[in-house]
Amino acid sequence: MIEETSVLEAVNLGKRYRRTWGLQDCTLTIPKGRVAALVGPNGSGKSTLLRMAAGLQEPSAGTLRVLGQSPSPGTNDLRERVGYLDQDRPLYKSFRVAEMLRFGEMNNPTWSMDVAKNHLALLDIPLRSRVNNLSGGQQAQVALTLCLAKQPELLLLDEPAAALDPVAREDLLRLLMRQVADSGSSVVLSTHALSDVAAICDYVVVLAHARVVLSNDTEYIVETHRILSIVDDSDLVPPPGVTIINEQRSARGRSLLVRVELPFNDDRWRVDRPTLEEIVMAYLREGSPHRDGRHVGEIESGAR
């Protein structure tokens, strides 16, 4: 058996909803063992990609492989190996937590009651509580716990921490990271919180207008982007090998967020290291339609 090195592989993947494309021409590879973030505005295709990966929607174009298989509603083997958490975090509100756990155990051959109970104990969530008496944060934690107790090789999480207060959000992310530390699960999660991406993700996929505009290791991304700024001299063009992602002008000068392939050395420019958040933001902005209809040129693929 060939060992899979990627958990998700899409080639020209597309999903059409009536007249519009929910995801278009999406080519990307997410390596195994990563915590990957899908970032992009609402409607950019994050949920569509996750739902297709979970086998809940069929692609309209291209191919998709998850853990080496093509996901479809009938693929039982994948259903055990993949955990999917919808952004609505569906729970049976009138159930007690313990009943939810039993329900999970009955439906999942790979279920670990120990994992479920350990997580909930660490979170101080009593098993006898009814789901609808729990806070929003606790409900999110229970929903994630149910997903983690399946012990899937791959977790697909659609905005797992959305609408949580800062403490609940941090608890949830730590719960997830503990699982990654213990079991080595791979994670693909969508989020709007760029600070979470910087803290926990080691792979980032930026989607804009149903297309992939950036997809790579966070470390590689951070190492290959710089902010160049210059006072006056507004016509100076950066040297070759530098791709401008985003440009901001002020009355006195310019500031460029650029991708550099080689060490940049040009004394006329002041060089700073952008944060991951700044880089992702630049790609998100450049992907937006009001910028003279131009999108960030070529897709940066996962190849290193």
């Binding site: 063992g33 730590r174 990271m177 803290a199 926990i200 080691d202």
Partner: peptide, 11 residues
């Protein structure tokens, strides 16, 4: 470390 701060164990 992952219990102490919110960080990816791979990191």
């Amino acid at each position: 470390v992952v219990t102490q701060i919110t960080i990816n164990p791979n990191t």
